[in-house]
Design a binder for these strands. Structure first.
Length: 433
RNA sequence: GCGACCGUAGCUCAGUUGGUUAGAGCAUCGGUUUGUGGUACCGAGGGUCGCGGGUUCAAGUCCCGUCGGUCGCCCCA
């Protein structure tokens, strides 16, 4: 057993291609959210425990077992955010953001749940989050789902995911449906799995997505929400589905898709995949019109979703790795000093470059090659004496001498000028100076 | 919290029915070439075989425990 500190369970050191994947997901998210006119917010990583405890209501198991809660030095109970929604709602209430309603927001970052790690599931994980607060119109549901769909499309994984959609109706619908479900499952109590018999008392809606095969016939025979939809709830769902159709977002109805908490109303949706083991959801959300009230605020309709960055990162194609255009290769201490200044000049002009400052010339060129740079810039005594550098194409091996003064003639920020003055004449690049 | 499987070099792994001094590839460093990368060849460093106990003449190998990892169950706000 090593004496050095180890990574704590369920955390990740994300490096290399995984880090590139992470960044690719976040970049796509930021691009798409701008297209939909969602504004960026940055939220605290921790909140008073009650922010999350009240948002998840009576499910005390989750509060006590699955939240990262701790006392600070003043004795206050704080909790690392297990998700973004509750914190954003708290901010909406405490900052008077009602004045901006309907407010379209996105954020992303780390979230924390004390769970057993498995594929696509970590204790510190990372989410994208989108919320539209203060909008009760079905158009808000359509817009935010369409944004999720476009994100998945731009990530190139729309073929690997499917949008499942359901409605939970309004409170009257939900209560009636829930009662009917309980009655139905009680009638088949002895045929249910052990887990589902326990769920019958704690969270009967969850029996609908039971993984136990023996439950499936009973689930299939269970009453669906459609039998209990009020006229308003039915109209709302019809507006959402026709809006999605108009937006060209493909969806399938999943009458078993539910949310356990009472504040969820109407729309529930999940983009699911079969490529992530037991974790099928990659982007999921719904309308949570009752949440603000459970936090003590006024009735405020809202809809949102969250998506796991790691899960999305696992699904996308390997992203393009950024590579330097130039690697400087100084030979000798005078050249190293010169290159330290020269590379700063190049970088101020916006050129992505790096310097190989260790080992023999051979080693330095190997490093330039390993970095997948396009060109190496060699500087030794000859070059210094002449006020020049040698540009070597790492593709063709062609080399040319270039005047330092000419390269640096262009303005700060003059990236194109600098690139051309370095590379023209190599690899068929014409001199356009 | 429960279950299954897995822990050997920095990484990926091999290691025979238990049998001498535990191996390979990749990576790292050096050399063939002290101013020329990708390819090739040569060499070097790097391991208390996760940890503890047991069985045995002998344990990387078998048994028990423990810690860690992976996957699944529960849960999924």
């Amino acid at each position: 057993m090593s004496k050095t500190p180890q990574r704590v369970r369920g955390t990740q050191d994300i490096f290399g291609e995984d880090a590139d994947r992470f960044q690719a997901v976040v970049s796509a998210f930021d691009r798409v959210r701008r297209l939909y006119a969602f504004r960026r917010v940055e939220m605290p990583v921790f909140e008073e425990t009650q922010v999350f405890a009240r948002s998840i209501g009576e499910t005390t198991d989750v509060v006590s077992k699955e939240m990262y809660s701790f006392e600070d030095r003043g004795g206050d109970s704080l909790t690392l955010r297990p998700e973004f929604t509750a914190g954003i709602c708290r901010a909406y209430l405490s900052n008077g953001w009602q004045q901006h309603a309907p407010l379209k927001l996105v954020t992303h970052g780390a979230a924390f749940r004390y769970e057993r790690p498995q594929k696509g599931r970590y204790r510190q994980f990372h989410q994208l989050d989108a919320e539209t607060i203060g909008a009760g119109e079905p158009a808000a549901d359509v817009e935010i789902i369409a944004m999720g769909a476009q994100l998945l499309d731009e990530l190139g994984i729309s073929e690997r995911v499917e949008l499942k959609l359901n409605t939970l109706g309004d409170p009257a619908t939900r209560d009636a449906w829930r009662d009917a479900l309980v009655e139905h499952f009680r009638g088949h109590r002895n045929d249910l799995s052990e887990d589902s018999r326990a769920r019958l008392e704690k969270n009967p809606l969850r029996i609908l997505d039971s993984k136990a095969h023996q439950d499936w016939p009973i689930v299939d025979a269970a009453p669906t929400v459609d039998d209990f939809l009020t006229a308003e709830a039915s109209d709302f769902f019809a507006a959402v589905t026709s809006g999605l159709d108009a937006a060209g977002v493909k969806w399938t109805r999943d009458p078993r898709l539910v949310r356990g908490l009472d504040y969820y109303r109407h729309t529930a949706f999940e983009f699911v995949t079969e490529d992530l083991g037991a974790q099928s959801a990659v982007l999921a959300g719904g309308r949570y019109d009752g949440l603000m009230e459970s936090l003590g605020g006024p009735h405020t309709p809202a809809v949102g979703w969250a998506a796991g960055i790691e899960r999305l990162g696992m699904l996308i194609d390997s992203p393009w790795q950024e590579r330097p255009e130039f690697v400087l290769v100084p030979m000798g201490s005078d050249a190293e000093i010169f290159c330290g200044g020269f590379i700063a000049d190049l970088r101020r002009r916006g050129v992505y470059c790096d310097m190989a400052y260790r080992g023999s010339l051979k080693k330095r060129l190997q490093r330039a090659d390993a970095a997948k740079a396009s060109y190496a810039i060699l500087v030794g005594e000859d070059e210094l004496a002449a006020g020049e550098v040698t540009i070597r194409s790492l593709k063709s091996g062609e080399q040319l001498r270039r005047s330092v003064a000419e390269i640096l003639k262009g303005p700060i920020g003059g990236r194109t000028f600098t690139l051309v003055s370095l590379t023209h004449g190599l690899d068929g690049i014409a001199n356009t100076l």
